[in-house]
Design a protein around this nucleic acid. Structure first.
Lengths: 229, 229
DNA sequence: CTAAAAACATGATATTTATCAGTTACCAAT
DNA sequence: ATTGGTAACTGATAAATATCATGTTTTTAG
C-alpha cells in the first residue's frame, strides 16, 4: 500500500510543502509510485512528460546526449528533488534524460495537479520559482567552471561536490559511487582522462580508492587545487 | 520626461505584460530611468540588488569573473529583457555582473514592486517562472556545448547566435559588434585563439570582416561545422 | 593632430587533453 | 570453476588549445 503525500517526509525538502491541505490531498490521490532499477531511465530526452517525478529514494543523473555520442551529466538528483518540473512548466518536451544511478523509488504526479496549483496558489508558484532561480544560478556556475577550469580542477571539485551533497560511508568513502564513465560525464572529459587523474590524485595522497569507491583524504589540498594553487 | 510603463512597447517582450493595470501603475510611479555608457556596469558580481533593470535600449553582457582573471559571458541581454530577476527572487546577492556592451537605457524597478506582485498575482509569477524555465534550459544547452564541442564549433555557433538574436546591418555585418575579447569570453577560449579562428574562417570564406565587424558569408557551412561535419 | 593606450594579429612553443591500442581486473551467468 | 563481457587502467601518440613574444593597427584622450 502506498503512503499519503500529507505524511511524506520527502515533501519537507521540495516545493510541495507550499501546497495547501486540499491540494496535497489531490496530489496524493492522483500520484502513483514506481520503482526504477539501476541503469533504467525514468524518462528520456525528447519525451513529452505528463507529470513530474518526486524522488523518494536513490539517485538519478540528468544528462544530455551530444552530437559526438557522449553524455553530459548536468545534475545529480536525490531524495526530495522533483524531476521534470521545467518541462511541465514550459509545456515543452524535456531536454534531459533522467537515468537511475542506483535503485530508485519515485512518485509520479500528473501535470494537471501541478498546473492547477500553479494557477491558483501563488505561494506554491513562488516556491517553485525560488527553486528554479537556485538551479539557474548553479547552472551559471557550472558554465564558468567548465570553461575556465582545467580538467584536474574540475575533477577535484566533483569529488568535493559528491562529498558535500551525498556524504560519506563509515569507512570514509563517498556514499554515492559512480562509475568512472559517469564521473567523466559529470566533469566533461574523456573517461581515460578521468581515470588518469584519479590515479594521479591517489599517488599524491589526495584520495584513496577501493574498487569503484573513492574516498577523500586531503580535502584542503583538493580545495586549493580548485581555487588554482 | 519619462514615459509611462503602461505605454512602453518593451513590456510586450517580458513578464511585465502579465501585470494588472494597477500593478503597472505602481511600477511606473516607482521606476527610474538610467543611461549607461558603453563599458560601464549596471551592477557587479556580489552586489545586493534593490530591484530589477528592464532594458530599453542597448545590449548588456552578463558575466562572471573566474579565479584566473578571465570573464565568462553567460548571456547577452537586449531590449525587453529584465536583469537581476533571479537575485531579487532568491533574495541573494547577484552572481553575475552586467556591463553595457554599447550605450544603454534601462529602467530600474524597485524590488518592492516586483515582490508585491509576485505575492499577489499568480499569472505574473507563472510568467516569470516560464521565462526562468526557458533560461535554465538554455543554460543546460550551453553546458553541453562547452564541454562537448571544440572551440571552432563554438565559434561558429556564436556567430550564428549573434545573427539570429541581433540581426545584421545593411551591408550584411552582424548588428551587434563585440570586441575579440568579448567574443572569446562568450565562447570560453583565449582571445588569441578566437582571433586565429576568425582569420581561419575568413580564409575559408565562411565569414568576412571589416574592422571589428564580422559578417556571415556561408551560413550553411557554419551550421555544418556546429553539427560536427 | 598627435602621443599613448588598447585592441588586433600572427608565429613559435608549451601544455593540456583526447584518441587509439592494448592489458588487466572484476562481476555475472552458466 | 570457467567463461564471457564490461569496466578499469596504462602507455604512446596525436590533436587541440593556451601561452608568450612581438609587431601592427585602431582607438582614445589631451
Amino acid at each position: 500500500m502506498e503512503s499519503r503525500c500529507e505524511n511524506c517526509i520527502i515533501r519537507q525538502f521540495n516545493s510541495l510543502r507550499a501546497m495547501s491541505k486540499e491540494e496535497l490531498k489531490q496530489v496524493s490521490d492522483s500520484k502513483t509510485t514506481r520503482t526504477i532499477k539501476k541503469g533504467e531511465p525514468i524518462f528520456e530526452e525528447g519525451d513529452k512528460l505528463n507529470g513530474v517525478y518526486c524522488v523518494r529514494n536513490g539517485v538519478s543523473k540528468l544528462s544530455k546526449l551530444s552530437a559526438n555520442g557522449k553524455d553530459q551529466i548536468v545534475k545529480l538528483a536525490s531524495k526530495g528533488e522533483v524531476l521534470g518540473q521545467r518541462s511541465v512548466i514550459s509545456q515543452e518536451s524535456t531536454n534531459l534524460s533522467a537515468i537511475a544511478v542506483n535503485d530508485m523509488e519515485v512518485c509520479f504526479i500528473p501535470k494537471e495537479s501541478i498546473n492547477n496549483t500553479l494557477q491558483k496558489n501563488p505561494n506554491f508558484t513562488l516556491e517553485v520559482l525560488r527553486h528554479m532561480a537556485h538551479d539557474l544560478k548553479e547552472a551559471d556556475d557550472v558554465i564558468v567552471n567548465i570553461s575556465q577550469k582545467t580538467v584536474k580542477q574540475r575533477m577535484a571539485e566533483a569529488f568535493l561536490y559528491l562529498q558535500n551533497n551525498f556524504g560519506e560511508d563509515a569507512e570514509g568513502y563517498l556514499a554515492l559511487t559512480l562509475s568512472r564513465e559517469d564521473i567523466s560525464n559529470v566533469v566533461g572529459t574523456a573517461t581515460e582522462s578521468a581515470i588518469r587523474i584519479i590515479s594521479e590524485f591517489k599517488k599524491k595522497g589526495l584520495i584513496q580508492t577501493s574498487g569503484k569507491k573513492i574516498g577523500i583524504k586531503d580535502e584542503r589540498k583538493l580545495l586549493e587545487m580548485v581555487e588554482g594553487f
